[in-house]
Amino acid sequence: MSDLTLNTKPARRLTRKSVANNLFSWALVLPAILFLAVFTFYPLVNLIQLSLYRGNITNPYKTFRGIENYIDILVKRPQFMTTLKNTALYVVMYVPICLSLSLIFSVWLQKARKMNNFAQTCFFAPHLVATISSAFMWSWIFSPESSGIANGLIRLFGFNTHNWLGSSATAMVCVMIMNTWASIGHHALIFLSALKSIPGEVYEAAELDSSSSIKTFFKITLPMLSPQIFLMLITMTTNSFKIFESVRQMTGGGPGISTKTVCMFIYDNAFETNNTLGLAGAASIVLTIILMLITLLDFKGLEKKVHYQ
């Protein structure tokens, strides 16, 4: 049965019992829906309102601008499109690398041995650290002077020190490294739990057929994991599109605005500069639409490839 679509049976005759059953079911999901309505959907509506004006927090609806804010950020001024490009670059770098590494790690640590448990715990530990703390640590590691660990390492190999966070080519890569470090354990854990649910007989059968471990991985493990991989792909993509805290703390937008992401654009326009709340609203709506498109595309495009038991 597909994890993501529902199996709804056709409605039967309206008996008193079925009405009571329906009401009870709705009572179970109502709190969740209410919370979402107030804290996720209402803000979206509010943002649409805000995006049609130019104002600040005291006076959000100062001057009416219609869709001018949208035209501003999409066409007239390059800043938003640059942040969009930066974010897209980040996503394209981060998702494949993190996903494949997590898969490899989870298969590697599959067997229930002490060493694997220990390694698993260690790999997950970075996830526990608050993003601000990680950002402090890693900006120290990537410090441009010889005092930085990264520079110290490459000098051992004879290269010159490099300004990691100050050069637009490498700044985003550094942020990606930090985020991979922080979240590999988390994703590997999810894959691990899925791996444990693959029946042992499948592997035994493969061994009987004397299939090599690599072949087993591609022909058996991957397809059996495909629901989880699919799910992780979607969540990773949408989450990395929303990246904010780590970039802000590590590079503050990087040299110029080469590492500024869309959420940073939204936050800065809402909180740092005056009179730009409408721009933040417009950017938020554009971001939401993009995320919806990505999720829909993922569903349509990849669901066919997903193999269900």
Binding site: W26, P43, F244, T288
Partner: peptide, 30 residues
């Protein structure tokens, strides 16, 4: 459980995943 409108409720829940948190700061504060 099976109930009328289950699909809609589920769609509502899933679509909430697509709305970025940073954007909701100001409205929720209000």
């Amino acid at each position: 459980r099976q109930f009328v409108g289950k699909g809609i409720a589920w769609a509502v829940v899933i679509s909430a995943l697509m709305i970025p948190g940073t954007c909701t700061y100001v409205p929720i504060y209000m």
